[in-house]
Simulated scan of single mutants.
Amino acid sequence: MKGVLGSCVNPACQYFQTPSAKASLKCAKCKTARYCDRNCQRAHWSYHKQFCGIWAQTSADQSEIPLAKVKQKMSELVWLIRGIPSVTDFLFATCLEEKRQGRRGCMDFEFKTFEDLYEAVRVLESQPVTKAVPFFASPDSPSYRPPGSNPDIIKLRKIVQDDLVTKVVGSKCAWIENSTRVNLQMALDLVAKRDDMMVLSVTVLLKGTYATHTHDFLYKDLSYRPSSYGESSGQ
């Protein structure tokens, strides 16, 4: 009998994000992650185990979706993207071109599942670190530290797996407009007339039509006005 079409969640598999009758094996615990066979499942377990419990709880609880761990990973994604100059350069170039056309919006990374988000974080974390530098956020950012505080340290990375990063992370990114999110609109007001600062949004789709969002700012020179803190951005 022909299997149900699904996509294998193992990025090393040829059926990753490609609907196939072969991806019919489900994780017994969360009943959501699909694999082609036991080999794919075993190879992916070290990553899937991080979010298997979240999926299992979501499947069992129809009234409340646990979001704490998802939110944490969303923030980690923004932090990782901030530290990859080749990615931020692309985001800024795209954003500025849209603004020149008179459009109001931001770059958004949308993930259809928790698992897609976790996999994107893993892929970016696997890229080699070139150096660590101090980082200062704007006063309007969730990452803000008052003047005089010890700076955060951010690891700068270089992409060496272009195809994998594009497939797992880059394919999720797009320009969005006309959002009804009030907090996002306030953030867009702050960067409307600035070319050195942009908004980056992350969206994860949940049950039905529900989704969870977060956003933060990216800065052209990594940090926000580093001279006001008496520090150098390190770039």
Rank of each mutant, 00 (worst) to 15 (best):
T113L: 11
E125S: 06
C95S: 10
A137I: 10
C95D: 08
K112Q: 14
K193E: 09
S171F: 07
R145G: 08
G105H: 05
S143W: 10
F111S: 05
D140H: 14
T209M: 11
K158N: 02
R225N: 12
F109Q: 05
L124N: 02
T88D: 01
K207R: 14
G102Y: 04
K155M: 01
L184N: 03
Y224H: 12
R103W: 03
V129N: 00
F217Y: 15
P85Y: 00
K167D: 14
P147N: 14
L184I: 12
G208W: 09
R104F: 05
R194A: 05
Q101I: 02
D152W: 10
K99P: 02
T113P: 08
W175A: 04
L200F: 11
T180Q: 09
S227L: 10
Y210T: 15
V169T: 08
T212I: 15
Q101A: 13
D116R: 12
V160R: 10
E125D: 04
S228Y: 07
A187K: 03
N178P: 01
D216M: 13
F111N: 08
T113V: 13
R122V: 10
T130H: 00
N150W: 03
F135D: 02
F135P: 03
M107A: 06
S223M: 05
A132R: 00
P85N: 00
I153R: 03
V169Y: 03
A192I: 03
K220P: 01
S223E: 06
Q101N: 13
L206I: 15
Q161C: 10
E177W: 01
K131R: 06
M198C: 08
D116L: 11
K155T: 02
R103Y: 06
S149C: 13
D89S: 02
S126Q: 11
T166N: 10
V160I: 13
Q185H: 09
Y219F: 15
A174R: 11
D140V: 11
G148R: 11
S86L: 00
I153G: 00
Q161H: 13
P134T: 02
H213F: 15
K99V: 06
F92S: 01
Y224K: 04
G148A: 14
L188S: 08
F111V: 10
S201C: 15
G105T: 10
V87S: 01
A93R: 03
K112L: 13
F111A: 09
T113W: 14
R157Q: 05
V199L: 06
S141Y: 08
C95T: 07
P134M: 01
T214M: 15
K207L: 14
Y144T: 08
